[in-house]
Amino acid sequence: MSTIVLLLITGLGLGALYFLVASGLSLIYGLMDVLNFAHGSFLTLGAFAGWEFARRFGADSWGTFLLSLLVGAAVGAIFAVLTELLLIRKLYERLIEQVLVTVGLALATVALFEGIWGQDPIYLTAPAWMGGQTNVLGASIPNDRFLYIAAAVIVLIAIVLFLKFTRFGLIIRAGVENRSMVTALGIDVRSAFTLVFAIGGAAAGIGGVLASHYNGYVSPYIGGSLLIFAFIVTVIGGLGSLSGAAIASAVVAVLQQFANYHWGIGDLVVVLLLAAVLLLRPSGLLGSKA
């Protein structure tokens, strides 16, 4: 029983990280049909920004930690907005070229991060509580997992409220469904493009700071390694569906934890799950677009 609880909660903790990356990917794809390979770089830069901030202001204090999340979110959002304005927008309606540009950006920025911060992992410190454990139904759960789950839930609620109750949110939801009809109502849908990049970048930035605590280090590669799983989660959940991304994040990560614990083949199970879902339901669990 305690093992199950442990695997479940640590799985949800991992799923929280997946969701922070996948939410942006899914929104961006849903609205713009762009598969954003540079999303991992938003995350990595956010992680480095958070670490640079934290090490200057005392990495073991809660205040610094929380502020480092904000710094990561801001840096991720700015990077994402610049990407949209300077690269993606130039290739409006050129879907493959947009994907190619994000591929180029991902390769170039990872190399740049290597140049700036080196290839080796940089270990970081966190508030002491995060290194401790809490007993839940007999299972000792690392405290940081609760934090990841809380962060993901807060981000999910924030995005849902934004989408539900603001005009921009309305435009984004409509645009995901039928972009050209939105423009035919006299709305410049491109402002919504910039906005989803900002939202996605911010979520990825937060995800980056948290992922660096999850790993215990920052490195130029943390974005890329999470990105593959985030892609898988996004596709399984249904491209463009936020709730799909949330559910798939949790399911995939928990499944991965269980498979890893019992047979050591978590990654493989995820890949097989993706293949199975795509073959049975090509549009994903909750997706409406093929």
Partner: peptide, 27 residues
């Protein structure tokens, strides 16, 4: 661009309605 043209004062009722099916009527 399309949105600028529409803003000049054109209303468009497309073939097959093209309502946003996941949005409410009010939305």
């Amino acid at each position: 661009r399309t949105h600028k043209i529409v803003q000049r004062g054109i209303g468009y009722v497309p073939e097959d309605r093209e309502v946003f099916s996941k949005l409410s009527v009010a939305e």
